[in-house]
């Protein structure tokens, strides 16, 4: 169960990261590629961060109409560490396909997300299994991700009321507080996001649960330029309540806005790919 939930989470990471194709082409999405002054002026106005612009910029940072990528997921637990290599395809907000390439034991295992449905294809037994909705809403065992924040296509500017707390020193940047809007159902009551001094790159996100306790911290690092999209290529999630647990997500390659045919995201295609 733990393994399959890992797959869910991975899929949903993509869902949340690469979704919102329609929003992919907005003013900041593409402009974020450049480092020219107009962009910087937009995020930082007269030395002060433009909060609304920064939040929208982060929201759209990873999004595009479609994408393919290769990434590495490193799951560290107190007694073992596992590394998975995966290839992904996304189209719009709703369609995601992930196929594991390594290690050999799991090679060919695929996860397909279409809208709110998730399937796992298991090549060894040649079966496609639909993951029950109850598993998507529950926090998943043995993993550092919860299904909720991955299924939930969270939008900072839609779901949260943001406020600028002020400059941050560790790390250097701006500390922004995001409080969940009263009508939003979710696991998090509050988020603290530290963005770089120029407002372009998120550095740390701290997630506070419904009781206001710090539940986990997400660190962004290794900023890279992928097709003109400048994004942190490494995400490290550390849960507060599980000592010795850590999940690292490392993008090795991402191609944005490449043609991905619709048939990629079909159950029959899943089974053919074995």
């Amino acid at each position: 169960m733990k393994r399959s939930t890992t797959l869910i989470s991975v899929t949903l990471i993509f869902a949340s990261i690469f979704s919102a194709g329609s929003r992919g082409g907005d003013a900041l999405g593409k402009d974020s590629a450049g480092s020219e002054n107009p962009m910087r002026r937009f995020l930082i106005e007269d030395g002060d961060p433009n909060l609304s612009a920064i939040i929208k910029h982060i929201d759209n940072m990873y999004r595009s109409k479609s994408s393919t990528s290769r990434l590495k997921l490193i799951v560290t637990k107190p007694r073992n560490t596992r590394t998975l290599t995966m290839k992904t395809w996304t189209k719009g907000e709703e369609k995601v396909l992930v196929i594991i390439e390594a290690p050999p034991r799991e090679k060919g295992t695929a996860t397909l997300k279409i809208e709110k449905n998730l399937w796992n294809y298991l090549p060894r037994i040649d079966r496609t299994i639909r993951i029950p909705p109850s598993m998507m809403l529950a926090s998943w065992m043995g993993s550092d991700f919860t299904n909720d924040d991955l299924v939930h296509e969270a939008s900072f500017h839609k779901d949260y009321e943001s406020s600028l707390v002020g400059p941050s020193e560790d790390p250097n940047g701006w500390l922004i507080e995001l409080k969940a809007k009263p009508d939003i159902v979710g696991l998090w009551k509050k988020l603290e996001v530290i963005v770089s001094e120029d407002g372009r790159i998120p550095l740390v996100s701290r997630y506070y649960d419904r009781k206001g306790r710090l539940a986990r911290t997400l660190y962004y690092s290794d900023v890279k330029d992928f097709d003109g999209h400048i994004i942190p290529s490494k995400l490290v999630l550390i849960p507060e309540d599980k000592k010795g647990h850590k999940t690292e997500l490392i993008y090795e390659d991402i191609d944005f806005d490449v043609p991905v045919p619709d048939r990629t995201f079909s159950l029959s295609n899943l089974e053919r790919k074995k």
Partner: peptide, 16 residues
């Protein structure tokens, strides 16, 4: 029935 889980080494356990 298909049984799917996580093996002790963290890998994907599945069998019929």
């Amino acid at each position: 029935v298909a049984v799917i889980g996580q093996a002790a080494d963290g890998s994907l356990a599945n069998d019929l």
